[in-house]
Simulated assay, not measured.
Amino acid sequence: MKINKNYLSMFLLVFSMSCKAPQKEQRLPKTVHELNNNTNISKKTFRLQGYTKSCCTSIVNYALKEVPGFIKSTSQTDTGEITVWFDHNHTKEANIIRAINQTPYRVLP
């Protein structure tokens, strides 16, 4: 059985990161209303290739949690989309796209 090196690397990364010590959580907006009313927060919806199952959301969310400034995401696997909220003072949209593209899914133009 041939195993794709990228998938194996992602699995090992996810497995090793699950053993990390918990970090102190910062106060984040709790509701979509709070997110949308915060001027530092950007909201962007991305369409992803192959993003069709509920298990896809865990993989992408894990990658996004490693991006400083990532706040929250909601997934719509029936349409293959993910909406991401992030603090644009701490990260750029390109960093969000890069994190998603490191998973088995790709941001579509």
Results as ranks from 00 to 15, higher is better:
residue 24 K to S: 12
residue 14 V to A: 01
residue 71 I to M: 03
residue 13 L to V: 00
residue 51 Y to P: 03
residue 39 T to G: 04
residue 57 T to I: 15
residue 22 P to V: 06
residue 44 K to T: 15
residue 26 Q to R: 15
residue 2 K to Q: 03
residue 85 W to Y: 10
residue 96 I to L: 09
residue 8 L to S: 13
residue 99 A to H: 13
residue 99 A to C: 14
residue 57 T to F: 07
residue 96 I to F: 10
residue 45 T to H: 08
residue 25 E to F: 07
residue 63 A to V: 06
residue 8 L to Q: 14
residue 83 T to L: 01
residue 102 Q to H: 11
residue 16 S to Q: 03
residue 78 D to V: 01
residue 100 I to A: 13
residue 48 L to P: 04
residue 48 L to V: 05
residue 99 A to F: 15
residue 9 S to D: 15
residue 30 K to M: 12
residue 35 L to M: 14
residue 60 V to S: 09
residue 65 K to V: 03
residue 40 N to L: 11
residue 84 V to L: 04
residue 95 N to W: 05
residue 69 G to A: 07
residue 13 L to I: 00
residue 54 S to A: 00
residue 5 K to R: 09
residue 20 K to M: 15
residue 87 D to K: 08
residue 68 P to A: 04
residue 67 V to M: 03
residue 17 M to Q: 13
residue 18 S to E: 12
residue 77 T to G: 06
residue 38 N to I: 08
residue 44 K to W: 07
residue 17 M to I: 01
residue 1 M to Q: 07
residue 69 G to F: 03
residue 22 P to T: 10
residue 39 T to I: 10
residue 107 V to F: 02
residue 106 R to P: 00
residue 1 M to K: 07
residue 68 P to Y: 07
residue 77 T to C: 10
residue 42 S to M: 11
residue 109 P to I: 00
residue 106 R to G: 02
residue 56 C to V: 01
residue 106 R to W: 02
residue 21 A to C: 11
residue 20 K to W: 10
residue 73 S to P: 02
residue 65 K to N: 14
residue 56 C to E: 06
residue 87 D to V: 04
residue 89 N to L: 06
residue 95 N to S: 14
residue 30 K to G: 08
residue 56 C to L: 01
residue 41 I to N: 06
residue 52 T to D: 02
residue 95 N to L: 09
residue 16 S to A: 09
residue 83 T to Q: 01
residue 20 K to Y: 13
residue 56 C to N: 12
residue 72 K to L: 03
residue 6 N to I: 05
residue 23 Q to D: 08
residue 20 K to I: 11
residue 96 I to S: 10
residue 39 T to S: 12
residue 46 F to P: 02
residue 60 V to L: 04
residue 31 T to V: 12
residue 14 V to E: 03
residue 98 R to S: 14
residue 105 Y to K: 07
residue 82 I to V: 10
residue 83 T to I: 03
residue 75 S to Q: 01
residue 42 S to G: 08
residue 19 C to A: 15
residue 38 N to W: 07
residue 61 N to W: 03
residue 22 P to I: 06
residue 98 R to C: 02
residue 30 K to A: 14
residue 70 F to T: 05
residue 90 H to N: 11
residue 85 W to S: 00
residue 40 N to V: 08
residue 55 C to I: 04
residue 10 M to R: 13
